[in-house]
Computed example of a mutant assay.
Amino acid sequence: MNYESKKDRPCADGREARIWYLYVGDVDARLSNYKGTLLKILEERSVRTVYDCACGTGIDSVMLLEEGYKVVSTDALDVFLEKAQEMKQKREELADWQIGVGDWLDLKSAEVDHPALGYDAIICIGNSFCALPDFEGGSNTHLKALQNFKDLLKKGGILIIDHRNYDYILVHKTFPPKSHGSIYYNSNRVFNIKADLVEDEDISIIFRSDMDVSGTELEGDSDIKLKERDGKMVPTLELNNIPMYPHTLKGFTALLKTAFGEEAEHRLLPDFRENEQEDFVPNYWVHVIVNEQ
């Protein structure tokens, strides 16, 4: 199965992009949660070229372009890429930004020109990688994608990739405590969050939640229902998100070591935080691994 084929993509209309923006919340607030640490990592490795292989609407790509990095951006969903293209067309300084459809399982066919010598860094953040099912079983699909990332990196280049704290979610059936916040998705519109484990051909988790769309263009959507929130009835959109593969911390670390080698330098950051207390419960585990070969 190939995400570059439209029939295999997890969602395919512009409405999804509008919902995603509401789910993200304030863009500046999102970036403030991890921008400093991300830029520090890139600076420490003398990174100049970055491949954002799960760029969505381009929030992180544009931030990196503004910081002077040369960025190539792809995503499997062209409805998100349309938003990125709109942003590019509005700003002359983004004229050299390459944007195109890209499938992790066939990156050679991506609609961009990859540098012949490879990238200094690849980023795949926002729990994006977990949207890839294990089509072949035995994590072979995930390993193929990780190997494709590795093949596009220079020697000494880094992959920055993350996943939700599924160890916590599998036990508690919801996200970690709200007091710790979410580094990517900060909307205060989302409520009634539940996590359902599905064990069919592939193991996956489906997050189900409600979104208060009061005062937005989605308020008149045909799927809107009135639901109680904090004692009030509000126009609500039920979110049945795409299935996510529940990578555990131990399991995903093992996958990275298999793809990059047991001796590869590997760094783990809870919610992009450095020197965090041992009892901190992150929403995301962020991995930084070096291509040593």
Results as ranks from 00 to 15, higher is better:
residue 90 K to P: 00
residue 47 V to R: 06
residue 49 T to M: 09
residue 86 E to G: 15
residue 113 D to Y: 10
residue 9 R to F: 00
residue 58 G to H: 07
residue 82 E to W: 01
residue 24 V to A: 08
residue 229 R to Y: 08
residue 143 L to P: 01
residue 199 E to I: 12
residue 230 D to R: 06
residue 77 L to H: 14
residue 205 I to L: 12
residue 77 L to D: 13
residue 189 R to H: 02
residue 179 S to V: 14
residue 163 H to P: 05
residue 201 E to C: 03
residue 114 H to K: 07
residue 1 M to W: 03
residue 109 S to V: 01
residue 69 Y to K: 10
residue 3 Y to L: 11
residue 23 Y to P: 00
residue 23 Y to N: 09
residue 99 I to R: 08
residue 241 N to P: 00
residue 176 P to A: 09
residue 276 E to F: 02
residue 46 S to T: 10
residue 185 Y to C: 08
residue 177 P to G: 10
residue 164 R to K: 13
residue 189 R to D: 01
residue 34 Y to C: 06
residue 127 N to E: 08
residue 187 S to R: 05
residue 132 L to K: 08
residue 175 F to K: 12
residue 118 G to D: 05
residue 194 K to D: 06
residue 88 K to Q: 15
residue 119 Y to T: 09
residue 134 D to G: 08
residue 93 E to D: 15
residue 80 F to W: 08
residue 146 L to T: 06
residue 279 D to V: 01
residue 6 K to W: 01
residue 72 V to R: 08
residue 287 H to S: 14
residue 263 E to P: 01
residue 231 G to Y: 12
residue 162 D to L: 05
residue 159 L to C: 04
residue 9 R to M: 09
residue 189 R to I: 01
residue 230 D to P: 00
residue 202 D to P: 00
residue 146 L to I: 03
residue 214 S to T: 15
residue 88 K to W: 05
residue 231 G to S: 11
residue 82 E to L: 09
residue 208 R to Q: 11
residue 60 D to L: 00
residue 195 A to W: 02
residue 199 E to G: 00
residue 181 G to L: 11
residue 267 R to V: 15
residue 52 D to Q: 10
residue 260 F to Y: 15
residue 118 G to F: 10
residue 169 I to G: 04
residue 19 I to E: 01
residue 192 N to A: 13
residue 98 Q to R: 04
residue 30 R to H: 04
residue 102 G to S: 05
residue 164 R to L: 14
residue 162 D to S: 06
residue 68 G to Q: 07
residue 163 H to E: 03
residue 54 A to V: 11
residue 35 K to Q: 14
residue 14 G to I: 04
residue 182 S to D: 15
residue 125 I to C: 08
residue 218 L to A: 04
residue 237 L to A: 04
residue 271 D to F: 09
residue 257 K to R: 15
residue 127 N to H: 07
residue 67 E to S: 13
residue 135 F to T: 04
residue 155 K to E: 06
residue 117 L to Y: 02
residue 168 Y to I: 05
residue 48 R to K: 15
residue 84 A to E: 04
residue 123 I to G: 05
residue 262 E to F: 11
residue 132 L to V: 12
residue 18 R to M: 01
residue 105 L to F: 10
residue 202 D to H: 13
residue 208 R to Y: 01
residue 197 L to I: 15
residue 152 L to R: 15
residue 28 D to I: 00
residue 195 A to S: 13
residue 251 G to V: 08
residue 280 F to P: 07
residue 7 K to Q: 07
residue 191 F to H: 08
residue 228 E to D: 09
residue 150 K to L: 07
residue 166 Y to A: 04
residue 144 K to R: 14
residue 289 I to T: 05
residue 172 H to Y: 14
residue 176 P to R: 09
residue 220 G to E: 00
residue 203 I to L: 14
residue 36 G to H: 09
residue 76 A to Q: 10
residue 36 G to Y: 02
residue 58 G to E: 06
residue 72 V to Q: 04
residue 132 L to D: 07
residue 72 V to I: 13
residue 66 E to K: 12
residue 42 L to E: 11
residue 83 K to Q: 12
